Computed example of a mutant assay.
Amino acid sequence: MLKPAIAAAAILFAALPAAAQDCPDESQAGLNQCADEAYKKADTALNATYKQVMARLKDSEATAKSLVAAQRAWIAYRDAECDFIASGVEGGSALPMIVLQCREQLTAQRTDELKALLSCEEGDLSCPVPAP
């Protein structure tokens, strides 16, 4: 029976992002590099979306402060979760790839969550981001 972390890593590995599948260098170092590039792309998209949300919160200091706190907590969660997911391959050459793929996936999900806040319908009391 596989340890839960190894099973989670296997599931994550089975769902490799397209960037890793299309990596021109199929060595582990090359795959690690491709995973890094894919994560950086996802992180850039997250940062752009985060800035859009923050711009909409310019008139609400308390809400903006809450988003900053939530984002910091989310980053801590993302990093801890990905360290956990990759713990089954600790010490191996695939460790950076697994961590980065996990971070890319969770970062893309967070970007989608923040984008949804930019599309809230007028009168949605559960949405703290005002319409433009």
Rank of each mutant, 00 (worst) to 15 (best):
A10L: 09
I11A: 14
L12P: 06
F13T: 10
F13I: 08
F13W: 12
F13C: 09
A14Y: 07
A14D: 14
A15W: 05
L16Y: 09
P17G: 07
A18S: 13
A19D: 12
A20E: 14
Q21W: 02
D22Y: 05
C23G: 05
E26D: 13
S27W: 06
S27H: 07
Q28N: 06
A29T: 08
L31I: 09
L31T: 03
C34P: 01
D36I: 04
A38C: 03
Y39H: 03
K41W: 05
D43H: 14
T44M: 05
A45F: 00
A45R: 06
N47D: 14
Y50F: 09
K51E: 15
V53E: 08
R56D: 08
K58P: 01
K58H: 07
K58G: 14
K58C: 04
S60L: 02
E61C: 02
E61V: 00
T63D: 07
A64I: 02
K65L: 09
S66T: 10
L67Y: 12
L67I: 00
Q71W: 02
R72D: 15
R72M: 10
A73G: 08
W74F: 12
Y77M: 09
Y77K: 13
Y77E: 12
D79L: 03
D79S: 08
E81R: 13
C82I: 05
F84R: 14
A86D: 10
G92Y: 12
A94L: 12
